[in-house]
Amino acid sequence: MGDREAILERLRGASRPAERLSPWLTRRTFENPVDRFCECLTNLKGDVRRAESAEAAWTIVDNLLDEMDAHSVVINQEPPVDGMDTVARWPERTCYVVGESEGDLKAFCADCDVGLTGVSAALVETGSLIVESGEGRSRLATLLPPVHIAMVRVSRLTTDLFTWTAGRGDHIPTNVTVISGPSKTADIEFTLTLGAHGPKRLIAVVYEDGEMDS
């Protein structure tokens, strides 16, 4: 504790009154937030699929999994994914339902083909997805598989970082990650390459859910 006291003493010696600042409020309104969100995520090399209904969205997921011949899928048990009996829907695939399935979650995430999750929010300004940790929600499921499919209900959209932090609750989950596109690097000769250590493909299935949220 010697270092702590010595450092704090120096800091206290320099302490002085400071201006109290009011928060920066968003300066943005988007005429069509859904379009803007999809456009931005596409610009970030995300793969955006739009659907008119939850049913249509799930059909898109079926087709995506077929196309990429996905044998194994890790599934975060969170809204809206928890509303679907994915194990019954895809009997031909090995599904690991986080919080329910037995076995080593990390090992499964490291080997499987796809991570399927919901999002707790999405940012219109930047085309970002926000995922959180908690019961039924693995953080490795959105990181280790080569493909991440996120089910994005339009009611989850919020304008930008400022509306998001203004609307936060008192409780903060252990982990919150704002995802803006697939994993990438430009460390070799400044050439953009996708899929460094996280998913090479980030697919957002965006659909109307009839709910109105903030």
Binding site: T174, N175, T177
Partner: peptide
Amino acid sequence: QPLSVYTNVVTGPRKVDDEDG
């Protein structure tokens, strides 16, 4: 970039309900 690809917020070690971390 508007935001980096990952903005990762860590608040403590995994809790009872957390699945990993």
